[in-house]
Nucleic acid binder design. Structure first.
Lengths: 148, 148
DNA sequence: TTACAACAATTGTATATACAAATGTACAGT
DNA sequence: ACTGTACATTTGTATATACAATTGTTGTAA
């Protein structure tokens, strides 16, 4: 990924700017590949993330606020995101008995099964994306990203 | 930026997945800061990018396809993106004389002036984002990002 | 008990983006 | 001139996201 070539400039870009642009370009590539990988399942990356969080709960239901905390999205989107998963039959939604303000979300059997399939493809996609980097380099990269 | 803490998992995440997630989180942070920085000007990051490309042309007009090549966006969005800049008075749009299929876009004086102000703020934002990294580390990071 | 603040989720609205289809223009071959 | 094809941009539509305002629920202090 040659930044200067991609954005087609002859000018030398300052190192700091170059780094930010570079990160955005890499992220674009990631998004593109991940989105493509998930397309056959009809779920977005965010929806996929919700399903993974729910699975991590091991049966214990999550309310929307909890889901939201672990996601990038804004609260209002989380509601609609869960709507989508609901119509697909991947999650259940019930109001909490002890606190009727809360909504409890759980992953369904169908959701889990689909998630297993998605996992395999996502794993493959991730591997493809980082295939040019050694383990040592991946660790270095994570080390550097920690500084953000 | 501690990935495990942010996504609140105790489980060890495989290195490859962790790297992808890490990159997405860093990108989120970048987006958030950049969006905030541009908000006072009423332009989106994409609109800002278009303005920068146009300035790079030094008076020579760009058509939509050219703009599009240098951007991440899809063609259909580029049209609407330029619409927005047009209503703000930051760009001019005329049909090309020699090839009436083409649309020529140029940055206006007002657009240039605003862009100068945006540049300063963006520069500051970028510096803040990478403030924890030395020049050597920035170079290392760019080197690793090249492998995507 | 009433009033009020805090909480949890939802809805409305504007904007952004992806993808496909449609419009208008140029040009090459017949 | 006529036809078809490629080109350049635009429009339609569905979905995604941000932000603000709203609804409904709970706990608490007067």
């Amino acid at each position: 990924m040659d930044v200067e070539k991609i954005i087609k400039t002859k000018k030398e870009i300052p190192l700091e700017s170059r780094t930010i642009i570079h990160l955005m370009l890499v992220n674009n590539k990631i998004m593109e590949m991940v989105t493509t990988a998930l397309k056959p399942f009809g779920v977005s990356l965010q929806q996929f993330n919700v399903l993974r969080i729910l699975r991590g709960q091991e049966g214990k239901p999550s309310n929307l606020s909890t889901l939201n905390e672990r996601m990038v999205t804004k609260m209002s989107n989380t509601t609609r995101l869960v709507d989508k998963l609901l119509t697909k039959g991947f999650v259940d939604r019930t109001t909490c008995e002890s606190n009727r303000r809360k909504i409890e979300i759980t992953i369904t059997k169908k959701g889990s099964e689909m998630l297993t399939q998605m996992d395999a493809i996502m794993k493959k996609t991730e591997s493809t994306l980082v295939s040019q980097l050694s383990n040592k380099e991946l660790n270095e990269l994570n080390f550097l990203l920690n500084k953000f």
